[in-house]
C-alpha cells in the first residue's frame, strides 16, 4: 500500500509541475513562421526537472526498502496475487474516469477553440490544464480505488 501512495503522490506532483511548466512555456515562448523560435520554461521547468530527480531517488530507495516495488511497473507493482487483483480493480475505475474525461474534453476543447479563437495562448493553456487535470484526476482515482479495495478485501 505504501508504494502505491508514494508513487501516486509523486506522479501527481510531477503532473502538476509539468502542467505549470507547459502553461508557462505556452505564454512566454514563440515559434514564428520564418523558423525563429524561443522556448522559455521559467522556474517551473527547473522545479519540474528537480522533482524528476528527487522522485527518481525516492523510487530507487523505495525499491530497496520494499522488495515488492518494481520501478519499471511503478504503481502497478504487486507483492502478491491479492495486490495484483486490487490493481486490476483500481484500473477499472481509472478506465471509466479517463474515458469520461476524454469524452468531455473531446467536446469541450473544440467548443472552447471557437470561443477563444482570438486568444490562442489562453486556449493552449486551457488545453494543457484540461489534459493535466485529467491525468491528476486519474492518479487520484487509482489511489482512491487501491485504498478502497485494499480495505475491502
Amino acid at each position: 500500500m505504501k508504494k502505491v501512495i508514494i508513487e501516486q503522490i509523486g506522479n501527481i506532483i510531477m503532473v502538476i509541475l509539468a502542467t505549470w511548466t507547459m502553461s508557462y512555456m505556452v505564454a512566454n515562448s514563440y515559434w514564428h513562421a520564418n523558423g525563429e523560435s524561443s522556448f522559455r520554461f521559467g522556474i517551473y521547468g527547473i522545479l519540474f526537472l528537480a522533482w524528476l530527480i528527487i522522485f527518481g531517488i525516492v523510487r530507487a530507495i523505495l525499491g530497496r526498502v520494499d522488495p515488492s516495488f518494481n520501478s519499471s511497473q511503478g504503481e502497478l507493482s504487486a507483492g502478491d496475487e491479492r495486490e495484483k487483483a486490487i490493481s486490476q480493480q483500481a484500473l477499472r475505475w481509472i478506465y471509466h474516469v479517463m474515458i469520461t474525461l476524454l469524452l468531455i474534453e473531446l467536446i469541450a476543447i473544440p467548443v472552447l477553440s471557437l470561443g477563444m479563437g482570438a486568444q490562442p495562448v489562453l486556449f493552449a493553456q486551457a488545453v494543457v490544464i484540461a489534459l493535466g487535470g485529467a491525468l491528476i484526476i486519474s492518479f487520484i482515482v487509482y489511489l482512491s480505488g487501491w485504498l478502497y479495495f485494499d480495505a475491502k478485501e
Partner: peptide, 10 residues
C-alpha cells in the same frame, strides 16, 4: 507461501 502480511490477515 510468498504473500504479504495483509493477504494472510485478509
Amino acid at each position: 507461501v510468498g504473500v504479504t502480511r495483509r493477504t494472510i490477515i485478509s
